[in-house]
Amino acid sequence: MKIIIFGGFLGSGKTTVIGRLIKGLADAGRTCAIIENEIGEVGIDDALLREAKVEVTPLFGGCVCCQISGSLIEAVGRIQDQIAPDYIIVEMTGLALMDGIQELFEKYGRPGVEVRTVCVVDMSRWKYLVTALAHIFDHQVGGADVVLLNKVDVEAPTDRTFETLREKAPQAKVVVLDEALKDPGALWAKLAECAAL
């Protein structure tokens, strides 16, 4: 079983990308379960994902990167025991910092579980991500195995974008979510290749 952790700033499109990925996984005959971490007491993203008829475990009351990390580990364990899916997809809050999450699982997760981290980047707010939001952004892309550039129809990435990402996330594979990757099967294939899923 593998865990795919999605991070990225608020409103970057994580839920939409996950919804597409779920369809791609289902079409490829793979099973998954979702853990949805939302700040705020009202569950909205989990309502969207439940439409895809996938098991969704909501985690409220804080952020799994820091405040409720124990709850995340427990939820993963419970899903492993009760459902045993091929993949557990974790959607972190948009304020979660990703650069400690792999270590969290290495330290406290069950042995043998592989973790991959994906950061969704909202290109339409790129200039804010690298300035006013840099203190969050750096710790999101900095912990990612794959960086997905989203909303590229609003703001296309430039050479400078890729250069900046190489500096901030030298370990990450960068993928542009273009029109072709709106197809769920294509998205799944691309992520599987880039993140060795």
Binding site: C63, Q67, I68, E74, L97, G100, E103, L104
Partner: peptide, 19 residues
Amino acid sequence: EHAHEHGPDCDCGCHGHGN
């Protein structure tokens, strides 16, 4: 046995600024 809830008082040093 279990992870602990990270927070400003947990003193594990795992995180500094998330909270």
